[in-house]
Design a binder for these strands. Structure first.
Length: 615
DNA sequence: ACCAGGTGT
DNA sequence: GGACACCTGGT
């Protein structure tokens, strides 16, 4: 589990400026007392040398292209912030991390472990533009099996509750840079290590490798926290910034948490935290620990009470969600002097539409036929209001369409009541439909690895033809060079985890499964292969895409996944990882636990196993 | 389905 | 605080 704040390692004081305030401050500037929320003037007062870089902006009349401009801070009236550069860096970092993690799940040296570990991979959750949670459990499990053969399940080892062997009693060799949180009072560093400790040690090794990769490749430092759940990892990550990792061993949790204000715990930083503070007259976790559950229940509703009771004891069950494709895109502007007319508002709608459209294109969303179904306009005067509508499925999404829809929505809001003066306006698109739109036909077919290679060559020309014919002229080129290939590879694995191939006959019927309003020819039928050949051979169910393929094609199939991973954007990767979970071959029992959980019952300590002891 | 509101970076 | 993004709950 990991979480880190990344920061460029510049030694010169530097901050990112948005209008007159700072939104990010590097570590070199912090000793001067510079923090977020300071004004540019205040920052200069504290550190005359500081470099203040304004964020990129869109400018009225310059279309959808952002730029860094020397005078943007003076143009708050006409410019709109663009966070695109940060989104791009964020993607690079995630990709680097993902690649670094990947190396931990493949080990050719011990083929007998393949059935147990193949397909296991870490899950990454993007928690912010510069933060990520990583569930390392699957990787740690792999490493444990390799290093501690006594943990490998033996055939007669049916009993899930069978006791684990004792771990080796040799002292653990922590890296000098691992920051260990002091143990609870009832525990001692002299005690023999337990499996939980070893799990953390392995995790620390992996995370160090990930952080090193980020440094080597991108020159960002990052801090990390390792613990048994997200809440503890998050708290830990802040303990040793900017460039160290903090390990909260299970035997240290009580001591660690006891020193915090509960308002620093995730979900308690807002109104709920305030409410609890005033009810119980304290912000300290240690004080709240003395309050019995029954008493919490008298003051809070039941679910909140028991959640709170658990969370301050280190019990956080929230999963690391595999990042899915982006769920919404928003473009917004606050108006310092409020705006007062439809005409003024429309200018901004143009910029919003261009911004969002650019991001739709950049993210390859159009190429993938992933489109938002809903558009929403938010409007704030004294109160805030929002209106949304469906994006007509028949239209090609472009800037003008977005603008027209936005304008309609704005009219509705304006007609609705007090619309002026308006202090904030935003446009967003959401409800992304990733059913590859016109290519639903692909789902339900299986493309064999070998054929995938040859066919992807043979069909590419025609494929891109039909693809670009329905693209606006401006985007043809992009589709042709890399877009379609990406799309092609992606769409085969991205969608349906079940991946049914029950009706091979359907495969050579054009568009048999295509919804009536969709064009079945977008992907030529001949590239599809609905039949599994070699069914008489041993079958292998790919944990990544759930496809069932002959054993002898496994390697090739994996190569194919590997190539795909390199090509498609990280968010798309995350999606396929998510879908691979249920297909984990190791999941034999415990349908209510996750794939990795079901199996870890055997491989991990019975007490305090990573997050899974609870259920 | 629609909208409001809360939480986080 | 501004500009995001995500989630939940009420109707």
């Amino acid at each position: 589990m990991r979480d880190g704040a990344t920061g460029n390692a510049s030694r010169h004081p530097l901050a990112v400026r948005q209008w007159d305030s700072l939104i990010a401050v590097n570590y070199a500037a912090r000793p001067f007392g510079i923090s977020r929320m300071l004004s540019a003037t205040e920052a200069r007062g504290k550190c005359p040398d500081i470099v203040l870089q304004h964020v990129a902006t869109f400018r009225e009349g310059e279309g959808g292209r952002w730029a860094y401009r020397d005078d943007s801070f003076r143009n708050i009236k006409t410019d709109k912030v663009s966070l695109d550069p940060y989104r791009a860096e964020s993607r690079k970092i995630l990709k680097t991390m993902k690649d670094a993690l990947e190396r931990w799940c493949t080990d050719e040296s011990e083929p007998e472990l393949y059935p147990l570990t193949r397909g296991l991979s870490a899950v990454l959750e993007k928690a912010g533009i510069d933060e990520v949670f990583i569930d390392l459990s699957p990787l740690i499990y792999c490493v444990l099996l390799r290093r501690y053969p006594e943990l490998r399940p033996s055939p007669q080892d049916e009993n899930k509750d069978a006791l684990l062997p004792f771990p080796p009693t040799t002292a653990l060799m922590w890296d000098p840079e691992d920051c260990l949180v002091e143990l609870d009072k009832d525990a001692s560093e002299e005690d023999d290590p337990d499996w939980d400790d070893i799990v953390m040690l392995v995790g620390a090794e992996i995370v160090r490798a990930v952080r090193n990769a980020v440094w080597e490749k991108l020159h960002y430092t990052c801090s990390a926290g390792l613990a048994r759940n997200k809440m503890l990892a998050k708290l830990g990550s802040a303990c040793n910034k900017p460039n160290l990792q903090t390990v909260v061993r299970n035997r240290a949790v009580q001591h660690f948490l006891g020193g915090y204000k509960f308002t620093q715990i995730r979900m308690l930083g807002g109104k709920l935290g305030d409410q609890i503070t005033s009810i119980f007259g304290t912000e300290q976790v240690s004080d709240l620990l003395n309050v019995p559950l029954e008493q919490l229940r008298t003051k809070l509703d039941d679910s909140t009470a028991s959640w709170l009771y658990g969370i301050i004891r280190g019990d956080d069950r929230t999963e690391v969600n595999p990042r899915t494709q982006i769920k919404s895109m928003l473009s917004a502007k606050s108006f310092r002097p409020s705006i007062n007319s439809m005409g003024q508002a429309e200018k901004w709608l143009h910029i919003f539409a261009a911004d969002i459209y650019g991001r739709l294109v950049e993210d390859g969303v159009l190429e993938n036929r992933r489109r938002p179904r809903v558009i929403t306009l938010h409007h704030r005067t004294v109160q805030s209001k929002s209106r949304q509508m469906h994006i007509p499925a028949s239209n090609t999404i472009d800037e003008n369409l977005l603008f027209d829809l936005a304008k309609n929505l704005l009219r509705q809001v304006v007609a609705d009541g007090q619309a002026w003066p308006c202090s904030n306006l935003s446009l967003s698109v959401s409800s992304f439909e990733d059913g590859v739109g016109k290519n639903k036909v692909i789902e339900g077919f299986l493309l064999r690895g070998e054929q995938a290679k040859s066919l992807s060559y043979s069909i590419r020309p025609r494929d891109s033809e039909s693809a670009s014919s329905e693209q606006p002229p401006g985007k043809r080129k992009k589709v042709e060079d890399s877009g379609i290939k990406r799309f092609f590879l992606h769409s085969l694995v991205a969608k349906d985890p079940g991946f049914n191939v029950e009706d091979p006959a359907a495969s050579d019927n054009e568009g048999l499964q295509a919804p009536p309003d969709q064009d079945p020819d977008f992907v030529n039928p001949e590239i599809l292969e609905g039949q599994i050949e070699g069914a008489e051979y041993a079958q292998y169910t790919c944990p990544q895409c759930s496809k069932s393929i002959p054993e002898y094609e496994r390697e090739e199939h994996d190569d194919w996944h590997f190539a795909k991973d390199l090509e498609i954007q990280d968010r798309q990767e995350a999606r396929s990882m998510q879908q691979s979970r249920p297909a984990n071959p190791a999941t034999s029992r415990n349908s209510n636990t996750r794939g990795r959980g079901g199996r870890e019952g055997k491989g991990k300590p019975e007490k305090g196993q990573m997050r899974l002891a609870f259920q």
